[in-house]
């Protein structure tokens, strides 16, 4: 039976060494580049003919724009407007990365925790810096809810700090685990189809068909969850709940 984890292997395409660090161009990098190109082409080409009453493609591009814009507006408010380009890029990058990963023989870069963790850490550091710049030292009141008796502070502050630090971890684990679990499950069931033959092979095939549909939902849902949590963290940093 084929190894269901084979799909996650990183293969070097063009070896590059940067001062002792292995910075080779790998299949993960290739698919990130492909994702960026696809997103740019999708948005660029569909908005090329700017008509007042949108056609199919323009409607899709406008829908994705509206979707993220209303998400930012609802969760962050008007102050969030200037962070919209970042949030939109993040959403489109994750969404297209997930969707391109569903094409057979392609590579899903969002199924690697280092990729999702680096995106999460960028969000985390960015949000923290925005909070500190906006509120100066007052930002650290995030770690001590108002109206708490001072006796509780030595316990509560470490808990709040740990809770804050766990944000990038939970953000990255969620995306990576969802993508990896789904893809592994699909390959495991696919591995049973041929060995079970024409009689029994239909059952895993039916499961795989259902899983494929489910994976499309997960691909969209996880991009959405990652983006909406970015918005919520941004809201915390801007408004200090």
């Amino acid at each position: 039976m084929a190894n269901p984890l084979h799909q996650f292997e990183i293969t070097t395409i063009a070896p590059i060494k940067l001062g002792g660090i292995d910075a080779s161009f790998t299949n993960a990098g290739l698919f990130m580049v492909l994702t960026v190109i696809t997103v740019s082409l999708f948005l660029g080409l569909s908005m090329r003919r700017k008509s007042l009453v949108p056609g199919r493609w323009q409607s899709m591009a406008e829908l994705s724009y509206e979707f993220v814009a209303s998400m930012v507006r609802d969760n962050v408010g008007n102050e969030g407007r200037k962070y919209f380009p970042f949030v939109f890029s993040l959403f489109m990058f994750i969404l297209f990365g997930n969707l391109i990963g569903l094409i057979p023989y392609s590579f899903t870069f969002t199924s690697h925790i280092i990729v999702t963790f680096s995106m999460a850490i960028v969000v985390f550091l960015g949000v923290t810096i925005i909070g500190i710049v906006r509120h100066k030292l007052h930002f650290f009141s995030l770690f001590l809810p108002t109206g708490v008796p001072m006796v509780m502070a030595p316990v509560l502050i470490p808990i709040e700090i740990l809770s804050y630090l766990s944000r990038p971890v939970s953000l990255s684990i969620r995306l990576f685990a969802n993508m990896m679990a789904g893809h592994t499950m699909m390959k495991v069931f696919a591995g049973f189809i041929i060995p079970l033959g024409i009689i029994g092979g239909w059952a895993p095939l039916a499961v795989d068909v259902a899983l494929t549909g489910f994976e499309f939902l997960v691909a969209f849902l996880q991009a959405y969850v990652f983006t909406i949590l970015t918005c919520l963290y941004l809201n915390d940093a801007i408004h200090l709940h």
């Binding site: 979707f67 740990l162 809770s163 630090l165 766990s166 944000r167 971890v169 939970s170 684990i173 969620r174 685990a177 969802n178 939902l217 997960v218 969209f220 849902l221 996880q222 959405y224 969850v225 909406i228």
Partner: peptide, 23 residues
Amino acid sequence: APASGFGQAFRIGTELVAALIIG
């Protein structure tokens, strides 16, 4: 977006585990 029960459950799970890992 459709937020499925599966998605919600998974979110709750990772929140718990992530804080433990950090701790």
